Amino acid sequence: MSRSRLENIREVIRQRNVDALFIQGANNVRYFSGFTGSNGYLLITTTTAVLITDQRYTEQAKQEATGWTILIHGLDPFTTITMAIKPLGITRIAYESKETTDYQITELRQEIPFVEWVPCVDVCIQLRAVKDADEATWIQTALQMAEAALGDLCEVIRPGVSEREIAVELEMMMRKRGSEGPAFDTIVASGPNSAHPHAKPTERAIQHGDLIVIDFGATYKGYRSDVTRTIIVGELESEQQQLFDCVHLALEQAVAGIKPGANCHELDKLARDVFIQADLEAYSLRGLGHGVGLDIHEYPRVVMNNQTMIEPGMLFTVEPGLYVPDIGGVRIEDMVLVTEEGCQVLTRTPRVMRL
């Protein structure tokens, strides 16, 4: 775990005029402490860093969270959390209100009535938006696993094979290449099903003239990849081809505009303007992409009206799409890493794939 991550948290503590930050979301715990167990709580002050977990992870916590004070709780974690707080003499603790339930915060307030619990939103995930060199490497490794599997999958896809069969084969191929598991539920949507942005694979058989939207990713060292390709089976109708060409152009335009100093709304607008000009914007979604890391959806959120500035080290998807009932849908998605001058497109699979 990089010491700079802990220092970033401590800077937040100082800026928000609190004595400590309490963290319990699993991926936030992992990011800041290095601990990968399924049960963990962090208590961080400007001088201390405490990890609380249960006896299943006693040795693992010592190995992974080097430099942290490790406390092992019994059946009730709140008793141990209280014991960790009282000796520190702190009275204002910030917590991530999206990660901590009302029940949990009520219990903590009852156990330690002299502490003021200050709700915060998305503090940790904002700090995770800029990736360090290791994170970028691990994400690229996960992406390479996924893309290699897609290359193998093209030998399997043919008329008569079902969406579900394709999804199962793809996930197995990623596993064989070292993936810890799918980054999210694999999407395989063909023909009319492709008009549903988050369709689940069905028993529908692939047919000549289909558009097949395949959205998938692999996982490596907990970090995820995300890629979508719309595969063309045979010849398309003119309306389908128009959708494909429009999405392809929107992706190119958006990627060309990525650079430090641009904001998320501006990037979304680059793709959206292509759809508006083609009179197809009504069939698009409200956002262009999202950050990827330990979670499949992270910051930045590259969506309409988001004024967040793009910074070097941010890593996110660019995934314009159009979804027209009775005609079909197209989504083409690349992952990009923002550089000092612009961006590096990490995805290497051709954007146009035809069987």
Rank of each mutant, 00 (worst) to 15 (best):
S2D: 14
L6H: 02
I9V: 02
I13N: 03
A20N: 08
L21A: 05
F22Q: 04
A26S: 10
F35N: 06
F35V: 10
S38D: 11
S38E: 10
I44W: 02
T46F: 03
A49D: 03
I52T: 09
T58L: 02
Q60A: 12
W68Q: 08
I72G: 00
G74I: 08
D76R: 05
P77F: 11
F78R: 05
I81C: 12
T82Q: 13
T82R: 14
I85D: 04
K86E: 13
P87Q: 12
S97C: 03
K98L: 13
E99G: 11
R109M: 05
Q110Y: 06
I112S: 07
I112L: 07
V118G: 09
I125F: 05
Q126K: 15
L127C: 04
V130H: 13
A133V: 15
A133G: 04
A136C: 07
A136S: 10
A142F: 02
A142G: 07
Q144V: 15
E147N: 13
A149C: 09
G151P: 13
G151I: 04
E169M: 14
M172A: 09
K176R: 11
R177T: 00
E180Q: 12
D185R: 10
V188I: 06
A195Q: 08
P197C: 00
A199I: 00
P201G: 05
I206G: 04
D210S: 01
F216C: 09
Y220T: 07
K221C: 07
T228M: 01
I231K: 01
G234P: 08
G234H: 01
E237L: 10
E239L: 10
Q242P: 09
D245M: 13
C246F: 10
H248D: 05
H248F: 15
A250D: 06
E252L: 12
G261N: 08
D268T: 10
D268V: 13
A271L: 00
R272P: 07
D273C: 11
V274P: 07
I276C: 14
Q277A: 14
A278E: 14
E281D: 15
G287C: 09
L288T: 12
G289A: 00
V292G: 07
G293H: 01
G293I: 05
H297K: 01
M304S: 14
Q307T: 14
M309G: 11
P312L: 15
P320Q: 00
P320G: 00
G321N: 03
G328C: 01
G329P: 01
D334L: 13
D334V: 15
V336H: 02
V336P: 12
T339L: 12
E340L: 12
C343I: 11
C343W: 09
Q344V: 10
T349A: 11
